[in-house]
Amino acid sequence: KKEGHWDCSICLVRNEPTVSRCIACQNTKS
């Protein structure tokens, strides 16, 4: 897992550190 990346708590997609919403389901970063 790269530094700063985060996994969506709903759909588990891994997102870039620069985005505050999931690219797949638009869930906000927790």
Results as ranks from 00 to 15, higher is better:
residue 1 K to I: 14
residue 1 K to Y: 00
residue 2 K to I: 15
residue 2 K to F: 09
residue 3 E to H: 05
residue 4 G to W: 01
residue 7 D to V: 07
residue 7 D to S: 03
residue 10 I to L: 05
residue 11 C to L: 00
residue 13 V to L: 04
residue 13 V to C: 12
residue 13 V to W: 06
residue 13 V to A: 10
residue 13 V to S: 10
residue 14 R to K: 13
residue 14 R to W: 06
residue 15 N to W: 01
residue 15 N to M: 07
residue 15 N to H: 08
residue 15 N to G: 00
residue 15 N to S: 05
residue 15 N to L: 00
residue 15 N to Y: 02
residue 15 N to I: 04
residue 16 E to S: 06
residue 16 E to D: 05
residue 16 E to V: 02
residue 17 P to Q: 02
residue 17 P to M: 13
residue 17 P to Y: 05
residue 17 P to G: 04
residue 18 T to Q: 15
residue 18 T to M: 05
residue 18 T to C: 00
residue 18 T to P: 03
residue 18 T to H: 08
residue 18 T to I: 11
residue 18 T to R: 03
residue 19 V to F: 04
residue 19 V to M: 15
residue 19 V to Y: 08
residue 20 S to K: 04
residue 20 S to P: 09
residue 20 S to M: 06
residue 20 S to L: 13
residue 21 R to P: 10
residue 21 R to D: 10
residue 21 R to A: 12
residue 21 R to Q: 13
residue 22 C to W: 00
residue 22 C to Q: 02
residue 22 C to L: 01
residue 22 C to A: 02
residue 22 C to K: 02
residue 23 I to P: 09
residue 23 I to W: 06
residue 23 I to S: 14
residue 23 I to T: 15
residue 24 A to G: 11
residue 24 A to Q: 07
residue 24 A to M: 04
residue 24 A to F: 09
residue 24 A to W: 05
residue 24 A to K: 11
residue 24 A to C: 05
residue 25 C to A: 03
residue 25 C to H: 04
residue 25 C to E: 04
residue 26 Q to V: 01
residue 26 Q to T: 09
residue 26 Q to I: 04
residue 26 Q to G: 13
residue 26 Q to Y: 04
residue 26 Q to C: 08
residue 27 N to Y: 10
residue 27 N to K: 11
residue 27 N to T: 13
residue 27 N to I: 09
residue 27 N to R: 06
residue 28 T to P: 12
residue 28 T to L: 10
residue 28 T to R: 07
residue 28 T to V: 11
residue 28 T to Y: 00
residue 29 K to S: 11
residue 29 K to M: 12
residue 29 K to D: 13
residue 29 K to I: 03
residue 30 S to N: 10
